[in-house]
Design a protein around this nucleic acid. Sequence first.
DNA 1: TAGATTGTTAATCGATTAACAATC
DNA 2: TAGATTGTTAATCGATTAACAATC
Lengths: 224, 224
Amino acid sequence: MKRVKVSNNVIRRLPRYLRKLDELSENGVSRISSFELGQQLGLTPSQIRQDFSCFGEFGQQGYGYNVPVLRSQIATILGMDRGYHAILIGVGNIGHALMDNFCFSDWGFQLAAAFDINPTLIGTTFGGVPIFSMDELVDYIRNNPVDVAVLTVPKEVAVSVTNTLTENGIEAIWNFTNVELTEPNSSTIVENVHFSDSLLSLSYFVSERHDERAAKAAKAEKQS
Amino acid sequence: MKRVKVSNNVIRRLPRYLRKLDELSENGVSRISSFELGQQLGLTPSQIRQDFSCFGEFGQQGYGYNVPVLRSQIATILGMDRGYHAILIGVGNIGHALMDNFCFSDWGFQLAAAFDINPTLIGTTFGGVPIFSMDELVDYIRNNPVDVAVLTVPKEVAVSVTNTLTENGIEAIWNFTNVELTEPNSSTIVENVHFSDSLLSLSYFVSERHDERAAKAAKAEKQS
DNA sequence: TAGATTGTTAATCGATTAACAATC
DNA sequence: TAGATTGTTAATCGATTAACAATC
């Protein structure tokens, strides 16, 4: 597979393609053109073909794309077949919800362990995942493969836990805390799930629509 | 305030500015230049000034920006002072975590009600928010102000619930299900929190780094 | 074969960066 | 005042779109 430098925008679209292809498969669709795929995703056919061409040639002239083949190519591009290991730090509300509800294995990940400071949780397992004491974290990292740490701790300890992680060789963090972890000159890969950023964007779009409507109403008022 | 058409990229950066400004305030910083802000966020000063200039003139030559003033301007732009009302549909794991952990009021929202089908939940309140039966949903929407619906139902019912919502006048959905709700020709505002998309992007970046490292190692091997 | 659709090159569009006069 | 830094215009860069030869 080609591995040239690919823009962020392209990378962010890949999981959407994957999701759509899974949906198509479920509906028994085994073949699709860039035109049709574009229709369904609100993208131009050109953009879709450009995106794929960053990684190889997955289609066939006059035919389009074979859905399962394309799906598996994108899965490979995303690294879903690499068997990455994840650990989760902080079995609070959101950590718990992830362990319970989010199927890591669907996306090629194995959630191998969780860590918390709560004595009533330590030593138990949840959905097959053992919960260890935070005291065991460093030891665990040093003796087990860990590709991604899921950070679901309270925001107060987010930075100190992150330091512990990076100092012990963790290179990728899936950050659910509302803290800006991205250090200017750090090489750690941080992927943020900032609920508040998402809600505030939504708030903006809602406000924009309200204002447009108000402006239109004012204009109509003026004319009457 | 100006309300010209602003690009998505700009809008997505606004909540980050807000978060950084709050952090600066906490640390007693009351004044900042676009240069310094850029340093801390990994953006160019030009970009920051361009972003702000979409909405007005918030700085002062030779001085920079007053942190609390800028913070409040951005809050207004995002609509945080409009007192939007939200309801939450589906008090499962993630819905519960949001009700418990996510402070809607910090972002200008009031979570007014939640809905579920679980009889043991219906009639109770959680963090002051009453949980109603799904049967009461339509009636509630018709008789109360609802600006945003938080969708935290199982994916199987996501589409049917969405239809109920939009048919009854809900125009904005904060979607936590792993379902692509964005209909091609719908006017509903949908903001997605797709955990799996986020994790897969992270998976890509991790894979990219692995591959680069492997390529470098292979090259070194060849030279020796 | 004829029609369809790809992969890719070129053209366009938009976003980011640089530069600088205005001014605090 | 002199130095600093904005807001904005112009230049650059990159991403999206259009076009089309290649080919299934």
